[in-house]
Amino acid sequence: MKVITETPRLIIREFTLEDAPAVLHFNTPEQVNRYTGDAGVCTRLQDAENIIRDIWLVEYQQYGFGRWAVVLKDNNTVIGFCGFKNEIRINAIDIGYRLHPDYWGIGLATEANKACIEYANKHMNLDIVYADVADANSGSINVATKLGMTYHSQYQDGELTFNRYVMSFNNN
């Protein structure tokens, strides 16, 4: 398993199939998927295995990046994902995260994604990154702004209104 980066509290690494129970666990609470548009996609262990094998592992091979596991250093527990996705529907790179609600509100999403941005600045050739956040999701709006992202535009997707945030990278 490839470690991407570390923070004082977290290890950011690639997912493996052994992470399937954790992926199921952090996707199960209803409030986790309230604003994601993929509620009900991961309700069984087989769903979690499919996401890891058919999406994340494929993206690591195809692009060299994808959503990465967020692991607590204290107990080596996978509590969610963070990082980048080559988002085909917007033809651009998206930064995002998902954490189990037990770990909300203590700065871990910001910490994890700041580490991803620092990693990208050093090791990836990104020009611009987007984050789409439901306008009702004030917690994720706060994370996007703490990352230094700026409001770009707004769009409607089904019943949800999304704010698109943007960040430009300095490729030195």
Rank of each mutant, 00 (worst) to 15 (best):
F84P: 14
F84I: 09
T36V: 07
G139L: 08
V41H: 12
N113Y: 01
S138Y: 10
V71P: 01
N137E: 06
I52Y: 00
A20H: 02
L147A: 08
N91A: 14
D127C: 07
L160N: 04
A120T: 01
C82Q: 00
N113D: 15
I12S: 05
N170F: 09
V3M: 13
N33T: 14
D38R: 12
I95A: 09
N163T: 02
E30Y: 05
M149E: 03
T5G: 01
F81Q: 12
N121S: 12
L57N: 08
F65T: 07
I128D: 12
Y165A: 05
A48T: 05
V3Y: 01
I55T: 12
A115F: 00
V143G: 00
Y60M: 06
G40R: 11
T161W: 07
C82R: 06
L57C: 13
F84A: 12
D94N: 15
L10Q: 07
M167N: 05
T145F: 03
I79F: 09
R53F: 01
Y35S: 08
R53G: 04
R98I: 03
F162S: 04
N142K: 13
I141Y: 06
K146P: 04
F84Y: 13
A109S: 12
E59N: 15
D19R: 11
I128K: 11
H100Q: 10
D102T: 10
H152K: 15
R53H: 11
Q62T: 12
R98Y: 00
F15S: 02
Y63F: 14
M1A: 13
D19S: 09
A112I: 06
S168E: 11
A109V: 02
T5Q: 07
W56Y: 15
V143L: 04
I93H: 02
R164A: 09
Y35W: 11
F162C: 03
P101S: 10
V143Y: 05
N163G: 00
K85T: 10
Q46H: 07
